[in-house]
Amino acid sequence: MKSRLGNLRLYKFDVASESDVGVIIITYPSGLSVIEKIQLTRYTGRRRRRGSKAGLSKSFLDKVHWSFMEQQYSNIDNQISDYIVSNFCFKDLDIVPPACPVLVFHFHTRFSEQDHVPEDNITSIARAVLSTLRVRDSVLSVEDALTKCVPIAPPTTEIVDCYQGSELCCLCGKGYPKEDEIVHKTRCNHIFHATCISRYLLRTPQCPICSVHLPPVDIRTLLFS
């Protein structure tokens, strides 16, 4: 059964006892979730192996890829790369200062025939992060954790779940849905295939239709603001 990325949301979680930490949460259509803690700078930074994009290392995508492969998913890592490259730059995260907020990646997946992906439950996200971090210097309540779990809005493009339309993507000339492809909407409200717009923005950081400036945002500015 074909599957695809339904959504990808980022959060920052402020907790003084942790630094240089990322949390990956993968939610499957069955309701099953996989949660893993990672060292953030191991998978991000300026100097990475060939194949990395926007400072996010290939090993990060490999880690996520194998998690999805265990559930018989395919092509998800490419869709994740398209989304992140369109929105964020991780190139200056070789070193993070003490008490850097935890960066949370929440991946929603869906089968191709599903109508939509449910919205994130912030309480569930906070609980998952708390249980994964096992906070050392204090015992945070879920209520406290909710105030520390802050969504990071995608600054350039967002995933439009289950989009269908009569128009053609102006970058490839093909319609929607394209086989095994998800759709992105820019902040200026224009629709493109994810692969098309991510590749275009890597070369030219502006909307191909209205020329609005669409650069990826330095993730450090979002983590530390």
Rank of each mutant, 00 (worst) to 15 (best):
S141M: 13
S141F: 12
V142D: 15
D144Y: 06
D144E: 15
A145P: 14
A145D: 12
L146R: 11
L146K: 12
L146C: 14
T147F: 13
K148L: 14
V150T: 14
V150D: 07
P151F: 01
P151Q: 07
P151N: 02
P151S: 13
P151E: 13
I152M: 10
I152C: 02
A153F: 01
P154L: 01
P155D: 03
P155I: 05
P155F: 12
P155L: 07
P155E: 07
T156Q: 06
I159L: 08
I159T: 04
I159R: 05
V160Y: 07
V160W: 05
V160Q: 09
V160G: 01
D161I: 06
C162T: 10
C162I: 02
Y163S: 13
Q164M: 11
Q164E: 11
G165R: 11
G165V: 10
G165M: 08
G165Q: 08
G165D: 15
E167H: 11
E167C: 11
E167S: 14
E167L: 11
L168T: 08
C169S: 06
C169T: 06
C170G: 04
C170T: 15
C170K: 12
L171M: 09
L171W: 03
L171T: 04
L171N: 05
L171P: 04
C172T: 03
C172S: 13
G173Q: 10
K174S: 06
K174G: 00
G175P: 02
Y176V: 04
P177D: 05
K178C: 03
E179H: 08
E179F: 05
E179C: 00
D180K: 12
D180T: 06
D180S: 09
E181M: 11
I182Y: 00
I182D: 00
I182L: 08
I182S: 00
I182M: 03
V183I: 10
V183P: 03
H184L: 05
H184C: 02
H184V: 07
H184T: 02
H184I: 01
H184S: 00
T186N: 01
T186I: 03
T186F: 07
R187Q: 13
R187F: 03
R187K: 15
R187D: 09
C188E: 03
N189T: 10
N189C: 07
N189L: 15
H190T: 06
F192P: 09
F192Q: 03
F192L: 09
F192K: 13
H193K: 12
T195G: 14
S198P: 05
S198M: 11
S198K: 05
S198Y: 06
R199A: 06
R199N: 14
R199M: 11
R199C: 05
R199I: 00
R199F: 08
Y200N: 07
Y200M: 00
Y200I: 08
Y200E: 04
L201K: 00
L201W: 06
L202Q: 13
L202G: 07
L202S: 07
L202I: 01
R203I: 01
R203G: 01
T204R: 08
P205K: 02
Q206N: 06
P208N: 09
P208W: 05
